[in-house]
Computed example of a mutant assay.
Amino acid sequence: MSDEGTALSFAVHAETSADIPAREALLDRAMGLKRRKKSSEKLRRGRRPSEGLAFVARDAAGTVVGTVRLWDVAMGESGGAALLLGPLAVCPSQKSAGIGSGLVRHAIAEARRLGHRAVLLVGDEPYYGRFGFSAEKTGKLAMPGPYEQHRFLALELCEGALDGAVGTLRAAGRKLKAGRTLLAA
C-alpha cells in the first residue's frame, strides 16, 4: 500500500521476523536507547504485538524506513480490551515525508477492520490529534510508571468504547517465547 500523498515512494507491509534487526536499529536511531525505559515498554515487555497489527514502511529500495506496532492491553478495573499504539518511528533522514502518518492511518484502519474498539497511546496531541486521538477519554485511566497525563491519548474506533474505563492499563495478549524479550519493543 503506497501513501499517495507524498513525493517519497514507500509502502506499508506486515512486519515479518526478517524485519526485526532493521526495526530494532531504526528504533535505536530514532528514539535512542532510553526507549526501553518508557512506561509503555512495561506493557510491551514479554509480549507480542496484537495479531496482524505490526507494520513496517519500506522505501522503493526495500529498506525499512518506518515502523509501528499495536499491543493488546486491558483497561484498569473493568478489564475492557484496547490497543496500545507504539512505538512509532521513522528513519530520521525521512522525517516529514508522510511515512509516520501513513503507518498510523494504516494501523488504525487495520485495527478497525479486525474489530478492535479503542486505541491508546502516549504521544503529542498536536501530531496524533489529526488522526482523532485526544486526552478527553483517558482522564480516569493511567499508565504503569511515570508519564505525562496530557500526553495519554485515545481514539475510540467504536463510539462509547472507553465509557466507564477506570484504572491502570495492564498487559494482555500473546506472550513472547522465552529468550525473545529483547525483540518486544
Results as ranks from 00 to 15, higher is better:
68 V>K: 09
100 G>K: 01
21 P>V: 13
142 A>Y: 03
176 L>S: 10
54 A>C: 04
19 D>W: 04
47 R>S: 07
108 I>G: 00
96 S>K: 15
124 D>A: 02
89 A>C: 15
109 A>D: 01
177 K>I: 12
167 G>F: 10
86 G>Q: 12
102 G>I: 01
97 A>V: 07
51 E>M: 10
120 L>E: 00
177 K>V: 12
20 I>L: 13
168 T>P: 02
126 P>G: 08
117 R>Y: 02
64 V>P: 03
103 L>W: 07
53 L>G: 14
147 Y>L: 09
65 V>E: 10
93 S>D: 14
66 G>A: 08
21 P>H: 03
24 E>Q: 15
108 I>E: 00
10 F>R: 02
42 K>Q: 01
34 K>E: 13
174 R>E: 14
79 G>V: 08
86 G>N: 06
182 L>Y: 07
7 A>K: 14
148 E>W: 05
16 T>V: 14
33 L>A: 10
35 R>M: 08
42 K>M: 00
118 A>Y: 08
128 Y>S: 15
158 C>H: 12
124 D>I: 07
127 Y>G: 05
89 A>R: 11
13 H>S: 10
90 V>A: 12
149 Q>K: 09
64 V>H: 03
44 R>M: 15
85 L>M: 15
129 G>F: 08
52 G>E: 05
18 A>R: 05
119 V>I: 06
9 S>K: 14
44 R>A: 08
39 S>G: 13
3 D>H: 13
113 R>D: 05
37 K>T: 02
117 R>G: 00
9 S>P: 04
117 R>Q: 13
149 Q>H: 11
150 H>N: 13
25 A>Q: 15
40 S>V: 00
168 T>D: 12
116 H>D: 01
